[in-house]
Every structure is written in structure tokens, then in C-alpha cells.
Design a protein around this nucleic acid. Sequence first.
DNA 1: CCTTAGTCTTGATAAATATCAATTCAAGCT
DNA 2: AGCTTGAATTGATATTTATCAAGACTAAGG
Lengths: 236, 236
Amino acid sequence: MYLGMPESDFPDIRGLHLFAEMSDEHFLALMRGSYVQNFPPQIQLIEEGDPSDFLHIVLSGSVELFSSWNHRETSMATVRPVSTFILAASVRDAPYLMSARTLEKSRIALIPSQDVRAVFDIDAHFARAIVTELAQCYRSVVKNTKDLKLRTSLERLANYLLRQQKRENGASEFDLPIEKRLLASFLGMTPENLSRAFKSLKSYGIHVSGNHIKILDQEDLEKFARPSALIDDFRS
Amino acid sequence: MYLGMPESDFPDIRGLHLFAEMSDEHFLALMRGSYVQNFPPQIQLIEEGDPSDFLHIVLSGSVELFSSWNHRETSMATVRPVSTFILAASVRDAPYLMSARTLEKSRIALIPSQDVRAVFDIDAHFARAIVTELAQCYRSVVKNTKDLKLRTSLERLANYLLRQQKRENGASEFDLPIEKRLLASFLGMTPENLSRAFKSLKSYGIHVSGNHIKILDQEDLEKFARPSALIDDFRS
DNA sequence: CCTTAGTCTTGATAAATATCAATTCAAGCT
DNA sequence: AGCTTGAATTGATATTTATCAAGACTAAGG
């Protein structure tokens, strides 16, 4: 029996919330039509506006989601293993709203969108998981909107650092996971201003060297950043 | 048999995509636990951070969704009849990310979130509709993010006017559906700047008098606004 | 080890946007 | 009609953010 995807990749995908609870039969049906590909860095995987033929899963490496308008471009999110992207376009059978490119050498799984929709209709667990995932995605974007509209760029950076710190289990020093240029775009500012913003945060106990961050005065930084569960929490 | 909601409200709700395809039995089960309430203007229905006990439906009037942080406030969306709001919080059983207040005298239906989740699990059509709706909401917020990050405030206003015009079936004049103060907040600018932005758009053939808008030179406005399907289209 | 290309930083300046203060305007009320 | 209240506008100014140009730093390749 031919399978489009190496079985060695199954466990990673099965481990995602999205696929964890569905029946073996349906999971295998999805895998059968899917395939996996390795891409070099800086390869555009998706162009916004194209029809959404596949649900994508980053198995290794990392992928940037970005959007363009009128010769301007902005970074929308970075996707890291193991997770899916452009689920919404897949289930709606609508054109992609964002483009995607690899940031580094990446391994990507591709599941035909129409298979996703078909299995959705016959597997209640999968349906449940898709709803949960979509609701989560929606809430993330709403939080991001609040961040953009309610905070200055300096406040956004300060809170970004606190969020990043949480991801690193509260360590007082850590490395930025992306280039500063990209971080600037994600935070809605220019690289020049990000540079100046880092400098301004010195007075709140932030030390920066290359992409290594040290938080020297946690309390002071938090007093300035005022992180909020309703903007900065991943879960919930 | 007691029903918490007047049967006269059933057709409006049943007419929503969300409830159109589900079985009568399940629809009635949902209605049984629900109720309807009339609210005066400027009543806060929901406070962000509160647990999401109900899925809300605007039957008449209008509701503003807004968010606050650090004594600042921003308008996130206006909800008009007949549509639901805070679906994502309901299905995730997570706290509301936005607050809601009536803009005018409004009639609101309240469906217990746990009933929504329960019926989701037993009615495949309802499940499908929820996914479609959530994906749509997600895509709307993504478009809004692109609007905010890729455009200046003047460009956002110009494109808002073009979108509004489409809603009015392309009429060359129409009324703004919300106060300018609120529009400014929704577009991420101050009322003062909105005022000046309207003035700047005069040179592209926009005439404003009170809340009445005339588009005198469609082509010129579009040349400046450069509307994009991937930001400004409602559908897709 | 040097070169090269790109990112990052810095300073100077310009543009966009916000704030503050003062009117003007409009709608609702008595 | 006159009054009251809040929205909308306008001008002056301040702050924030972007742009432009130059130089410093860094990592990859010959």
C-alpha cells in the first residue's frame, strides 16, 4: 500500500492537538493523500491570494507568515514545529490571506484541504479539534490587534520580551528566536526604531547583546510593560 | 412546555448561517435554555476577562465590541442584527477578550455556552456551521491586522469608505452607520485626526456633511485607496 | 584571511499622529 | 425658543514613528 508520507513523520503529526483524538482510520486516510517536502531557506511556499489547496504543517525548521500591500510588507507570525498553518483558509476553501516563506531549511507536510474538509464531516473528534484550534487562532489574532492598537511600540517590545521570557520558563536571560529585522516588522515598527526601543529599555533593566537578552530588573520591566492576561497569555 | 425565548424570535435566529442547517430538535433544544432581553443604550453587556457563559445574538439595535488596557480603550467592531458575537470564547470556554456595550436600544438573545458545546458534539451540521463561522471571524481579524499594519490612517479611512459604499450596493452617497468618534477608534486614530483625514480626502472627491458621505470621483478615490480583495472583501 | 553582503546601529531630518485648548455645531429637553 | 450636553472641528504644539544616509558589526564564501 502506498503512503504519500513516510511513517516516521506520523508520530509528530499525530501528537498535535488537531490530530490527537481522531480515529486511526481517519488519520491514515488523511496521511494517505498527504506528502512531505524539504525546502531550503527563504523559499516562498504560499502566495497570498492563491487558492488554499493544502493544509500545511511545519515538521522542522520555521516558517514566516507575511502580507503585502502596495509594495509594503509586514510579518504576521512565525510558525515553529510542530504546528499547522492556514487552517482557516483550508476549511473555508478560500484564498490564502497571508504568504508564507521558510526562514531556514524546513520540512513541511502538506495535507489536501479537501481531505481535511471530508474527514471533518465524518469524524466528530477531528471536528471538535478543528473548532478548538480555530477559536484559539482567532483569539491570538484578537490579542495581537489589542497589542497593536492599545500600546506604543516601546510597550509592545517590552511585553514581547516578557512573553518570550515566559516561553523560556521565566529564565532571566534568553536568545531572541528571530532576527531583529523580522521582530521589528512583527511588532509593527521599523528596524531602526526597534534598535532605539531596545536602547530605551536599558533604563528598565534590559541588556541586549546581539540577539541575547538579559532581564536585570524584572519588577521594573513589568511595572513599565503592564502585561495583561487578555493580551499576552498564550493559552486561554 | 416552557420556552425561554418567544417563538417570534425563532425565525431571525434560524435564518443565521450558524443555525440554518441544524435539526429542528437540536435547534429547539438550544432555544429552550436561551432567553431574550431588551437593553437601553450604552449598557455594558460583557466585561472582558469574565467567563463566557453565553453566546450572544443581536436581534435588533447594535452592539460595540471594545477593549481596554492601561486606561486606554479601542473599538474592535460593531455588531449589527442579526448576528452572533463572542462565539470563539463560547466554544473554547475561555474568558471574553473583548467587552461589549449596546450603542442603542437593543434586543439580545443569550444562549448558554455549554448548550452550544453540547449540541456541537451531537449535530454535525451545527458543527460544520460553527467551523465556517469561526474561520470567517478569524479571516476578518487577519484582514483588519493587515489594514492596521500596512496602511496609514488616511488610507484606512479611504478604504473604509469604499467598503461602506459596497455595503450600500455601490451608491455614490450614503450615511456613516456609526458616530465619527467611534469610527476613529475603530480605525485606530483620534477623533481630531479623523476630522483632518476627512478634510484631506476632499482632494480625492469625498464630500462630508455631518454623517452623510458623497463620493464624487470614484476613480480618483480608488486610485488613492488601492482597495484589495485580501483586505477589504467581506466574503472570501 | 580577506572580501562581501547583509543586518544592525546611529544620527539627522521628515512625516505621521497625538495631545491640548478653544470653538462651533447639533440633538434633545424643558 | 432657549438651554444643555456632548460631538465635531480647528489651530497650535508635542510626541511618536518613519525615512534617509552613513558607518559598524557579523557571518558566509572564496
